[in-house]
Write a protein that binds this DNA or RNA. Structure first.
Lengths: 226, 226
DNA sequence: CGTATATTTGATATACATCAAAACGCGTGG
DNA sequence: CCACGCGTTTTGATGTATATCAAATATACG
């Protein structure tokens, strides 16, 4: 979302601001849907709880993203939205939002645009899972993370994964070990670098090279990393 | 969508009706976005064209579904929407739709609900691809097809797949051979039956059993089919 | 009827999961 | 500060589901 869009929202909607700390939820599975939420700062994850009790990471969201669209049709939420660090969301009652949409069509088109964008992102994610190898999936994941930071004007030379390998794994449909191995291979290929302290910090010396690798992997050809 | 919703749309939007025959496109990748389309009858598929030229099936849509949401944010279409048999779509210029939304908030909420529903479906598809075995994915695919027919009041005892095995395969992220084998195994387990003529007709003697199989597969446990 | 295309089935290869264990980091309490 | 325990990450050995390769059969279509 642009700065102008943000200003419009603040002015037109008078959203309720809410700070959340690491682990706190914006909403939880099964809660009745009343509000949409716009991320003002921080990182948020979406968790789905399967019949088998297994929890699974199904989405990552950053500043500017909206949360809660899934509730509109169902009337309640189909997943948890949890803060990955300290962050702030702006919450708007959906019934109020509808009123404002009528008064200010700009707000309506903004809402549609955000929903549409979200759908496109989701689609890209499906394609990635369906078509890419584990290495390429992890590379793609990192590339998208860098993109997200870039778009928001944050540093991208070194990024801090706010997820465990296990979470990355079930987001990408693979095991902890496969994630770890993929990262090791990417590091060996100099596509990423582990910072000196801890292996949760990942340096991306050349984002373009990472993109190139993802693309090369989607085309048929020889295996590239070992 | 309910019948009431359909009537509302027809009355409020005066959509342009358009018949399409097998293979004709509602819109194509790259075309500028101007309209949203509501399927009045027939079956439609969404095709994505990758960098490698490879085309991939990324969505299936039926009566009542809307087409074209992806264009709102981008300004053009990111995929082709193609008729799988003879069908009719009702097309509405997006700019006109916005006007009507302001005049009749009911239409606006209807639009939001459809977008939200579409997002939920997409999410379910991702989870399916990420977590299920090939057999279960195919079973799940069939089950969803039956659901779609059921919701629209059509016969579900025997369904006609309007897709080649190859298309089913790349929709589900697997190869032709795996689809074929999965279908054979499901048939051997009596979860499906091939009709006497041609193997494009599939009988579903017991939809509930199919669902049960999908659920059983998502839980950890012994392999079930051979 | 004959050719092209779709489907099935079999044999083999391989990417990834699973199982197992070691190394590392991190907080807690002595 | 160090020792201990616990969770995370890495790495290795092995198993298996699915892709790949190849060929036979079935179906559609001119």
């Amino acid at each position: 979302m642009t700065a102008a869009a943000t200003a419009l929202l603040e002015l037109a909607l008078r959203p309720q601001r809410r700070m959340l700390r690491q682990g706190e939820a914006v909403f939880r599975t099964g809660e009745p849907f009343t509000c949409l939420h716009i991320i003002h700062s921080g990182f948020f994850k979406l968790l789905h709880f399967g019949a088998s009790g297994r929890q699974q990471l199904i989405g990552l969201h950053f500043k500017g993203d909206w949360l809660g669209f899934d509730g509109i049709a169902r009337g309640d939420h189909g997943c948890d939205a949890v803060a990955m660090d300290t962050g702030e969301v702006w919450s708007v009652r959906y019934d109020h939002l509808l009123q404002v949409c009528v008064e200010r069509p700009q707000v309506m088109t903004l809402l549609h645009t955000e929903m549409s964008r979200e759908m496109a992102r989701e689609r890209e994610a499906v394609l990635s899972v369906c078509t890419l190898s584990t290495d390429a999936r992890v590379a793609h994941f990192l590339r998208r993370w860098v993109d997200a930071l870039e778009q928001r004007g944050l540093r991208t030379d070194s990024i801090t994964l706010k997820l465990t390998r296990a979470e990355i794994g079930d987001y990408l449909g693979m095991t902890v070990e496969s994630v770890s191995r993929a990262l090791s291979r990417l590091a060996r290929a100099r596509l990423i670098e582990f910072a000196h302290k801890g292996r949760r910090e990942v340096g991306i010396p050349d984002p373009a090279a990472l993109s190139a690798f993802v693309h090369a992997s989607s085309a048929p050809g020889p295996t590239l990393l070992q």
